[in-house]
C-alpha cells in the first residue's frame, strides 16, 4: 500500500511519523518546522510541492496549547502527509516561522490562522486579518473567547441591542 510505503520512507528520516486510518502524520517542534517542510518538498522520492491546507486547533490546559497542521500534497507521487507543530501557551501570542516564502499558498491560510487564533507567523509578508473586520478585538476561535453572539460593533463604536437602547 502506498501510504504504508510512504510512512516507511518518512520514518527513516522522521522517527515519529505515524500512520493512522490511511493518513501519515509527522509531529515536529517549531524550530525544526522549516527544515522538515523543505526536506519534504525537495527530496526526490517525497516531492510534497503543494501546501493544500494549513489550520490550527486550540487545546487550553495542555502543555502545548496550539496545534498547527500543515497538509502537504505531492502532485508527482500523489501522496499526502500532515505535519503537526505544537506551541506552548506562553508567550502569548505564540510565534512560529512563516512558510509563505516556501509555499506561496500559505499566505492567506496563515492570515486566517492569525485572524482566528492569534498565532503570529514571523516572516509573513503581509500579516493582517483576513476574515474578521479590521479593528476586531480578540481571536474568535480560541476556546477562551466564549460562545454565543457578540455585540454589534460598527465603525469602532458599540451599538447596544434595541431593548437596551435609551429612547
Amino acid at each position: 500500500m502506498i501510504v504504508a510505503e510512504l510512512a516507511e520512507r518518512l520514518r527513516a528520516r522522521h522517527p515519529d511519523a505515524v500512520e493512522a486510518r490511511g493518513e501519515v502524520t509527522v509531529v515536529v517542534s517549531p524550530d525544526r518546522l522549516l527544515d522538515t517542510l523543505s526536506s519534504l518538498r525537495d527530496e526526490h522520492d517525497l516531492r510534497f510541492t503543494f501546501l493544500s491546507d494549513l489550520t490550527a486547533s486550540d487545546w487550553p490546559g495542555l502543555d502545548l496549547r496550539f496545534w498547527l497542521a500543515y497538509h502537504l500534497l505531492s502532485m508527482e507521487h500523489l501522496h499526502r502527509v500532515r505535519v503537526k507543530v505544537g506551541l506552548p501557551p506562553r508567550p502569548d501570542p505564540p510565534h512560529v516561522p512563516s512558510v509563505t516564502p516556501m509555499f506561496p499558498s500559505a499566505s492567506w491560510l496563515e492570515r486566517e490562522v492569525f485572524d482566528f487564533f492569534g498565532i503570529v507567523f514571523d516572516g509573513h509578508p503581509d500579516l493582517r486579518r483576513i476574515e474578521m473586520p479590521e479593528g476586531w478585538e480578540g481571536h474568535p476561535l480560541r476556546k477562551t473567547e466564549g460562545l454565543g453572539g457578540v455585540n454589534t460593533r460598527y465603525k469602532g463604536a458599540f451599538i447596544p441591542p434595541p431593548d437596551q437602547r435609551s429612547t
Partner: peptide
C-alpha cells in the same frame, strides 16, 4: 456566534 450581526436593527 462571532461572525454575524445579532439583528440588523442594530
Amino acid at each position: 456566534n462571532y461572525g454575524l450581526i445579532q439583528g440588523v436593527d442594530t
